[in-house]
């Protein structure tokens, strides 16, 4: 997994790239959580994520819940077909913010 973070005002945009599995979840959290804790709105661009497993979904849930606690939002953007399928399999399309 690789990533790039850009800033647009109060919004941090995290572009994730590659496959997100148990082996990279800690890294993903290290990227995303400090942005949420800094009270940024976080957009996760998932266009280039070709694979996500249950560990990756857990990162999305944890990020979503942490942002809610902080009164902020994590919005999932440009979700790839394969990631959307896993989100729907987990029945989270109504829970997570899909932008």
């Amino acid at each position: 997994m690789s990533y790039k973070v850009t800033e647009e005002g109060d919004i941090s945009i995290v572009h994730l790239d590659g496959e997100i599995d148990m082996d990279v979840t800690e890294k993903a959290k290290e990227i995303i959580m400090p942005l949420i804790e800094a009270k940024k709105e976080v957009h996760l661009n998932l266009k280039e994520v070709q694979y996500m497993d249950s560990s990756g979904i857990s990162v999305l849930i944890e990020s979503h819940q942490k942002a809610n606690e902080m009164g902020k939002k994590v919005i999932l953007k440009d979700i790839s077909k394969s990631v959307l399928k896993v989100i729907m399999m987990a029945k989270l399309e109504q829970i997570l913010n899909l932008g």
Binding site: S54, S55, S58, V59, I61, E62, Q65, V86, K91, L92
Partner: peptide
């Protein structure tokens, strides 16, 4: 599955 929290999804999948 309606108890939304991180973890526990692998076996469900």
């Amino acid at each position: 599955i309606d108890d939304v929290k991180p973890g526990g999804l692998g076996t469900f999948f």
